[in-house]
Amino acid sequence: MSDVTTDEPGGLAEGHAPKEPLPLASFDDPHLQPLAKQPARAEGVVGILLLLGLLGFAAYGAVYWVGGQPQVEGISLGVGLFCFGFGLSAWGKYLLPQGPFMEKRHKLASSDDERAAMAAAIVERGGMMVKRRSFLGGILGIGGAVMGVVLAFPLLRSLGPVPAKTFDVTNWHKGSRLVDNLGRPVHVADLEVGGSLTVFPEGYTSEEAMAVDQTILIRVAGPDVDVVTEPSRATWGPDGYLAFSKVCTHAGCPVGLFQHQTLQLLCPCHQSLFNVGQGRPATNVFGPAPRPLPQLPLYVDESGFLRSQAGYDQPIGPGFWERTTT
């Protein structure tokens, strides 16, 4: 220890506050007294809390040991942890020196000289690196940029396929037989008026295909009634049946609810409402959906099973940039 520091007691003070001795306090300084008015009583309370914590831990261990039960586990360990923590906090608050203590705030900013020195180090010493070396700097910059681009290939492009035309197509084609989720074909006599069923094109049972192809089949009238949702779709609704894409044109949720009294389809996610039935081509009448649900043209084959006349005449589901206007 140098002579200089021995003059400053402790010699450790410089970090705390330069040129000041380490602060010293007498043990009966009021700052060092506990906050509690009756420390003995506070100590008792803390003791009880810590013991309760211990009991809670033990109780949890016992409950676990005999097989466990979520509620009892929750209450035993929960109460145990809480009491244990409360005891420790109370110990800190009521039995440790009450203070108030303080420390000084030192200026965060460096001196002007130090700032200038750092700026100079960056600009001048750093400048020496690129001065008259702009060619190297250029290569370094271009190289870094190219590296960034090529590293993005595996990070992005490897993730999956680019969309291509996949948004436009479903597996519904001319003559596709309508089947339910278990693959059973739908007969014209299967649904009562007011009934509904989710259908898929026969032969496509994977979850991926079902997510896109899902179609809601509803029956709004009895046999021999062709339901015409709009004049150009005169033959699309044979025997009171109508079929619409079940993928909401808003955010893609399944339009799951058919309200047969009001003849409306409702999407439970964001409450888009579509009018269906005679002269009602699933028009969006309420909520955030921007377009009607695409309609699937149906026909009844000679054995009485429902089939599609063709696929959807437009991309199903929510909008996207490449979607052409229809």
């Binding site: 380490l22 007498s26 300084d29």
Partner: peptide, 9 residues
């Protein structure tokens, strides 16, 4: 408020 004492006498 006081500085935190380094030593308690």
């Amino acid at each position: 408020p006081m500085l935190v004492p380094g030593f308690i006498e």
